[in-house]
Amino acid sequence: MEKKEVVFRIKRFNPKRDSEPYYQEYRITVPKGMTILEALHVIKDEIDPTLAFRSFCRSAICGSCAVKVNGFPKLACKTQVFSELDKFGTDTLTLEPLDNMEVIRDLIVDWDKPLKKMEEMKPYLIPDPSVVPSTLDEETRVYPEELKKYDRFTDCILCTSCFSACTAAQMDEGYGGPFQLARVYRFAVDKRDALKEERAKIGYAYDMWNCVRCEKCADVCPKHVGPVDGIMRLRGLSIKVGLKDNPGARHVFAFYKSILESGLLNEVLLPLRAKGIKGVLENLPVGIKMILKGKAHSPIMRPIAEHENLVKVMKAAMEVE
C-alpha cells in the first residue's frame, strides 16, 4: 500500500481574534486513495480540533466543502491527495478558503452574498398557465430534446467554486456571477416558464456582457455545468428579446455579418460595427499604430474558397429547430 508524508499548509484566520491570516502546517501520512476531505478530517481528529472547514455529503453532491487547493477551487471530497501532488510535483498542498467572498473562519467563507444575488435573479420556475396544466391530473409534456436544453444547467450544486474563480465577479460588484447567470438561462429555455426568454433581461441587468469568457467557471465546476455556455446563450436570448443596441450585441452582429459576407472576420470594420463612431474614435490611436505597422487588412475582403457552401451551412443552421 503506497503511502506518502504530506504537508498540508492551511490558511487560517479568525477575523474576531487574528489581525492577519496566517498559514499553519500539518504533516500527516496519506495512503493512496485518500481525498483532501479525508485528510482534513484526519488533521481535525488527530492533530488540531480547532481547524474549521465545512463538509457534509462527502460524495460531491452537497457543495459544502469547496476550498482552494494550490490556488484552484475544488470539492475537497472528490479530490485525491495523490493526484494533486502529481499535478504540482510537490509533497506540500496549500489549502485556502475560496476567493471573492469574505472569510468567516479558516476555510469557511461567507457565501451569502453570491447566493443572495442568485435569489434576486428569480431562480425559480414561474409556471406558464398556457403550458403547465392547471390540475394535478396531468403532467406537462416535455420532450427529451426540450429537456436537453437546460438539463446540464440543473446539475449545479451551488458550491460557489465558479464564483470564487470568476474573473468578471472579481472586477465588477454588479456582475451576476457564473452559477447565478447559468440558472437564469436554465429557466429562460424551459418552456414551462412564464417569463421564458424575457429572463435574458435579468442577465443584462446583471452585466452578463462583462463575462470575459476566461472559461474558469467551466474548468473548476465539479459537476461539469459549464456556466459560461449558459451565459453565452443567455446573451443570445437577450438579442432575441430586443436588447440589440449595445456593444455586446452589435459585436455579435458584426461577426455574423462578416462571416456571411466573406467567411472571415472583418477586423477593420469591427470597431465601427460594434461601437459605432465612438468605437472608431476610442481605438483610433491604436488603430493608426497598427496601420503604420502593416497590421491591417483591406476593409473589403475577398471571400474564402467555397464560400457558397459556408453560406448554405449557415442558412441551414439558422433554419433548423
Binding site: Y124, P127, E139, Y143, T154, R192, D193
Partner: peptide
Amino acid sequence: HMGLPFSRLPDG
C-alpha cells in the same frame, strides 16, 4: 409543475 427536470419518455 414547479419545474422539476424529470427525465422524459420520447412522448414527453
